[in-house]
Simulated assay, not measured.
Amino acid sequence: MIPFKKWFGSKPEGEELARQLDADNIPNHVAVIMDGNGRWAQKRGLPRVAGHHSGMKNVKRITMAADSIGVQVLTMYAFSTENWKRPKEEVDYLMKLPLEFFPKEIDELIANNVQIRMTGWQEGLPDHTLKAIEDAIDQTKRNTGLILNFALNYGSRKEMLRGIQQLVQDAKENKVHPDGIDETLFSKYLLTDPLPDPDLLIRTSGEKRISNFMLWQLAYSELWFTDLCWPDFTERHFFEAIQEYQRRARRYGGL
């Protein structure tokens, strides 16, 4: 049985299920593709942006759930390098969400020792978006608890190509010897360094693909998919994903 941590006395859905989890087999790093916000809204006759707003509110709920059972890193895929192709109105709205989320939640995040990080490229992000994120990172940089990592303006192929380019440059400058290039070294050239690779990937909305997300890092991650759209994904569903993770045997190619 797991000792359950509550945020400000709040009682999440599925608390009893969480207490039944094996405290010695909690995934260190959980990554989430928060998919289905727009479809969730359209099914309700609402504009797509209403789904993104509901999805934003769900980030805190799942962060609380992850923190309550001892997850150390929670990465949320918030905006991909391909998402710039969406309608400008929708992109502009998504870029404003950090301005709403962080000021509203930062005090509670700090009180619960959560550290904010970002994985992605700053280039291309609006100044107001970047400032909201940088302020949150700065305000929580001394925290030592759960790392809430937002993958924002992130794409894995671009990440790996940039890493290879830098690695080649370092080899040319004799900072790296070709014989010394291995998986550990290459991982240091990725945006996720020094975070551990995800143990578990969760994707909502019924899609069963990785969508250019952490292609290198997910090599041996357990994958868990649900038909629920992200705004409908509750703490109980998160704990169900952890429960399924604990049923699996991770062999890493061995027996």
Rank of each mutant, 00 (worst) to 15 (best):
K158E: 14
Y93L: 04
I147F: 06
A136H: 04
W84C: 08
K131M: 13
I106V: 15
K141R: 10
T129R: 06
F102H: 01
K85G: 06
Q122C: 02
W121F: 05
L97E: 05
D127V: 15
T119Y: 15
L125K: 09
M95I: 13
L109I: 15
K141S: 10
E123C: 04
L99V: 11
G120N: 09
A136R: 02
Y154N: 10
A132W: 05
D138Y: 12
E134M: 05
P98T: 06
W84N: 10
P126I: 11
I110F: 01
L130T: 03
L148M: 12
A132R: 05
W121E: 14
A132N: 07
K88R: 14
K85C: 09
A111W: 06
G120F: 08
D107H: 02
T119A: 15
V114Q: 02
N112G: 05
A132E: 01
E105S: 09
E90F: 02
L152E: 02
L94T: 08
Y154S: 07
V91R: 10
Q122Y: 10
K96T: 07
E123A: 10
T144V: 04
R117E: 14
F150Y: 05
A151D: 06
I116V: 09
I133V: 07
G155H: 00
R117T: 04
V114L: 00
E82I: 00
